[in-house]
């Protein structure tokens, strides 16, 4: 598989420690390079790389298309993964809440408007990057601090009971697939 990039390659970070690099193409045809350690943070991408049998020799010749993530989000994701690629692996957890402090660097990275954050979370969920998901959810969770229910309703776009009921009614009234 070989896809010629139509736009300049975005060099997010020079990687000296690890010579193995991969190319990723976003939905809007931006091309990114990412190191092996960094790409491993994304379970989806790493599974793809493994299944495609990409190696140090052929990785750069075989860019990986990611249809669900645009260039803007991919840039943030690559930055994040490069930043955290050598972090210690976090223990598995099931029922327990992770207690962590959101580092300032990451807080800055995620200081984006709500719609962008929404899209970034969807991308993060698709690429299955647990740490970035934790951080994004912390940012959204922090928005609830010291807010009244009415303020929370606005921040999170929560419909009232009446609106929920109206939605359900319209859903049940709408014709099914057969018309």
């Amino acid at each position: 598989m070989s896809v010629e990039p139509e736009v300049p390659i975005v060099q997010v970070e020079e990687v000296r420690e690890n010579p193995v690099l991969y190319k990723i193409i976003s939905s809007d045809n931006h091309v990114f390079t990412i190191s092996e350690h960094a790409v491993k943070l994304s379970k989806t991408l790493w599974d793809l790389i493994t299944n495609l049998g990409l190696t140090a020799e052929n990785a750069l010749d075989n860019p990986i298309p990611v249809e669900n993530v645009n260039g803007k989000n991919m840039e943030t994701i690559v930055q994040f993964c490069e930043r955290h690629k050598y972090d210690e692996e976090e223990p598995e957890y099931t029922n327990y809440i992770r207690e962590f402090v959101l580092p300032e660097w990451d807080r800055q990275l995620l200081s984006i408007d709500n719609e962008e954050l929404f899209q970034l979370i969807l991308a993060t969920n698709y690429l299955d990057i647990q740490k970035l998901m934790d951080y994004c959810c912390r940012v959204i969770g922090d928005m609830a601090k010291d807010k009244t229910p009415e303020e929370l309703r606005i921040i999170y776009g929560i419909p009232t009971d009446a609106e929920d009921d109206a939605l359900e009614r319209s859903a049940s009234d709408s014709p099914g697939p057969s018309g």
Partner: peptide
């Protein structure tokens, strides 16, 4: 899961 209990309570009052 990232919210405190009181925030969850207040959120629950929304709908």
């Amino acid at each position: 899961r990232n919210m405190q209990l009181i925030e969850l309570i207040l959120l629950s009052l929304c709908s």
